[in-house]
Design a protein around this nucleic acid. Structure first.
Lengths: 338, 338
DNA sequence: CAAGGCTGTGAGAGCGCTCTCATGAACGCT
DNA sequence: AGCGTTCATGAGAGCGCTCTCACAGCCTTG
């Protein structure tokens, strides 16, 4: 089934048929109808490869997920993100090419692949530390949007949640509800999300006139096990603590188990607030108070920015910060207990 | 950067350069080296579209995920599956195109897309009921592999876990450890995985000489909330039950909450065994005994079968059944309690 | 030494599409 | 009536690649 045949059936030239397919306005309505009928009758679908070859666009965008497996599996973050991305891509007829490099070697091949022009743009999620990828892609003139924050000094578009604001809200709530010793389990400090939530924690304490105590801060890795470990450390250093702000629900689930094992009642003895509002938050006993962020929304927004920078090549990088919302449940007192 | 330039730099014809790129054996070692050097120097990467146009292969395979969002997010099933698929695809240089249709309309477009030859093969995951898609794709001569089971009567390759065997093992264990009234929360009965696990439950009871009681069976939908609901129903119908086999960990988490709320101690009053060995199983208190299956392995195996049927067009459909393993933890007594 | 067989190579066609450019028809204007 | 202008259309080039085919050079064989 080629355009040629469609054109023949419709009694027009290939060029006119092409114009109809691509929605050019300069086509006689009658000719247009003829071509449309032929397309429908023959079940014609354009050959992407041929089109790509001449337009130099691939109509597909790459989604790169750089994350060790542990987090990838424990947390519904990625399915949600992919779902949002897919939803935004699909009405535009763009393909979602999923890339999950799992070794140095694959990383190398990934970069080569992305810069070879097989792809119109790239979405990057969950960057760590000083990942050189966004900078390099941008340098090669490939449209990039980062979910979360790009490394310092790299000026590319990104979409992020208001991690800082969410953390401030959570910790302020703990303070306002009368807790005296508020600890935190932070995310990995090589990730912007980890750092921002920790900054929010500190700011909330500071603005409430509390003094900061570094020994009340423990770093986790966004995994359940690391949350449990951090909780054990905090409990040992500060047996008197009566509240913890945990930078992810998954880590909070780990912390909750440790508190349970240590026979601290939640929320009576220790209040706990997580972050993400992932389904996990409803799975714990008691259910977790948490900071809600919409990861699907983030995915959609990333696509929007990417399409903009594909269409308008040298526009300045943009950034979108999505609001977060404190959700109160049983784990910090006051909310429903199941 | 085109093959033409590479050829010129290496002092050979485009044809020879192409032979080197594609690993044809009939090339003089010296010419080969020259071309390879030129490729390295120029950073040449073949243009996929041009290649596709002539070979009539796209070197990409579609992964279709047909699942309502609830399950998609609660459960690490899909990230694991994608990870396995991606791992198996990447050394072959094949693209993973992710497709998540979310409406009738998108479903229609999906089918058109898949049959238009944009894709060398299709992987289908998580089919429900009598999904016509696998049969139709197969009818159109498109290589297909299903994760789980294809609908009855559709003869396509598939990879499945030994759902039946796993269920038998789990329930047999509950019986052997002295439980008297063993109930089950099954998966949705429009999915083969749901049905097979229920059959396993029944078979284990039967072969232990127990009688079957339909009121000990409640159907869930593989979501946490449906598990909780089913547990409530079971508890009402059979307050005396002392064991439950739940067809997924996520549902088991829901059931556990209900047991908790009903003040039944687990495992003392009620033993519970889940299915999947998802990270959720370690998140509950006590941790869940469960039936382990390797979803990543399933993904890899699906790719293997798909590549086989792409390479050898009219081979008979194949099936692979992956073994499952009973993992004992705190929730059914005997295992570790945390 | 001729005949035949390999082997490595290059010329060239052609995959299905888009897009530029030329053309001719229809129109409004002086 | 003659002119420029607009508009719809078709011819044809060319995107970068693979693959068939022909052929030159060499080796084997009787």
């Amino acid at each position: 089934m080629t355009l040629e045949e469609v054109a023949r059936v419709a009694g027009v030239s290939r060029a006119t048929a092409s114009r109809v397919v691509n929605g050019s306005p300069k086509v006689n309505p009658q000719a247009r109808r003829g071509v449309e009928r032929a397309i429908a009758r023959l079940g014609y679908v354009p050959n992407r490869a041929a089109r790509s070859l001449v337009t130099r666009r691939s109509d597909s965008i790459g989604v790169v997920i750089r994350e060790p497996t542990a987090r990838l599996f424990g947390d519904p973050y990625f399915p949600q993100l992919l779902s949002g991305i897919s939803a935004a891509l699909s009405p535009r007829g763009l393909q979602l090419i999923l890339l999950m490099p799992r070794s140095r070697e694959e990383d190398r091949r990934l970069e080569q692949y992305l810069t070879a022009g097989h792809i119109d743009g790239v979405l990057l999620a969950s960057l760590h530390g000083n990942d050189p990828l966004p900078g390099r892609l941008d340098g090669d003139g490939i449209p990039v949007v980062v979910g979360g924050r790009p490394p310092e000094g790299v000026r590319v578009s990104f979409v992020d949640n208001d991690n800082y604001g969410g953390a401030v809200a959570a910790v302020s709530h703990l303070i306002a509800s009368g807790r005296h010793t508020v600890a935190t389990i932070s995310g990995p400090l090589d990730m912007e999300a980890g750092v921002a939530r920790l900054r929010g924690y500190r700011e909330a304490l500071r603005s409430a006139g509390r003094s900061l105590d570094p020994s009340l801060e423990a770093e986790g890795e966004f995994t359940q096990e690391s949350g449990a470990q951090a909780m054990r450390a905090l409990l040992q250093r500060h047996p008197e603590l009566d509240a913890v702000f945990v930078a992810s629900d998954l880590m909070a689930a780990g912390a909750l188990q440790v508190l349970n094992a240590a026979e601290r009642r939640v929320p009576d003895d220790v209040a706990i607030v997580g972050f993400d509002d992932s389904p996990i938050a409803l799975m714990t006993v008691p259910p977790l108070s948490t900071v809600r962020q919409s990861i699907e929304e983030m995915g959609r927004e990333m696509v929007r920015l990417l399409l903009e920078s594909i269409d308008e090549r040298d526009r300045a990088p943009r950034q979108v910060i999505l609001v977060t919302e404190l959700i109160l449940r049983g784990s910090c007192g006051g909310g429903p207990m199941s």
